[in-house]
Design a protein around this nucleic acid. Sequence first.
DNA 1: ACCTGAACACCGTTCAAGT
DNA 2: ACCTGAACACCGTTCAAGT
Lengths: 177, 177
Amino acid sequence: MLAASLQLADEQGLAAVTMQAVADRLGVTPMALYRHVANKADLLDGVVESLLLEVPLPDPADDWATRLLALSRGTRRAASAHPEVFPLLLQRAAVTPGARRARDVVYGALREAGLGEDDVIQLERLLATAVLGFAASEAGGRFAAHSAAQLDADFARLQEMLAGAVVAALEATPHVP
Amino acid sequence: MLAASLQLADEQGLAAVTMQAVADRLGVTPMALYRHVANKADLLDGVVESLLLEVPLPDPADDWATRLLALSRGTRRAASAHPEVFPLLLQRAAVTPGARRARDVVYGALREAGLGEDDVIQLERLLATAVLGFAASEAGGRFAAHSAAQLDADFARLQEMLAGAVVAALEATPHVP
DNA sequence: ACCTGAACACCGTTCAAGT
DNA sequence: ACCTGAACACCGTTCAAGT
């Protein structure tokens, strides 16, 4: 049902995701959906969550910088696969299992990099926000005037910027030699 | 009419912005709105644009770093004033007068800082995206679990991060001594 | 437990008609 | 030029009833 809704959004836009259309696709009446979902907002929550769970987790064997890069690339890819739904991500509290899963990857990477716990927690929010902001802008159409090559270059530069921020935080961290 | 729609969204949520409700507030029938707006999407475009035009432009007498900070603070304030509408900003192409207005402020500041034209153009997108991503996350509820103090601290750190990116770009720029 | 038919109050949008 | 009444095809959601 969440898969059917996501597919519907991908194919015909978010506005096409109506209780009746989803039900149709499942060969059922609209009212049957209310057995599995409280209401339409709840259904959309589920769709957003399933999108989040589609972002592949990086290989834990890679070093921390590679893992961060892989996660942000996976996020951008999920956005481009589901541009209609992705922007909704910024409109839900990041407290679901899917949100926690991605957050934990970043926490682990920043800890391994050597940051203190307070830094880890704050920096994760800023890194995630920058990546989500970019991916949501791209998916939502804010960059519609720009070429794919330009956006690839922008994304690469964003990564450099974020890496620079992590390095700066590391340099400000007292470390055991 | 755009003002009435924005007010309606602020007071009762984006879902309450229906053609009938807007018409009601103006003391007119819904069909009368179609004289001023092509359809509902067009109306929402107008509402988003009017929100963008609400962001105050920085004092041109201030130095470039102060202007950038003022613009991003103004943006964050507009988001908190209109949390229902603000997230839509990431879902429209940044080609309207309101978008251009803000962009030109950043262009001017980065040029004055001493960046080359290519850097100015690319960095503007990244800075704007980071600020909009943060403001939209905050307005949209992604940070709902966090205190206002925490979010203020996050925003301050975001500014530091962005300032660091500008400085790094400046250091990589060959300059006339 | 799960699904349905019928119904309700609302949507966005059209069109011809009014002033 | 601007607004309206009536109508159309759709919404989300409820409730009692069916299996």
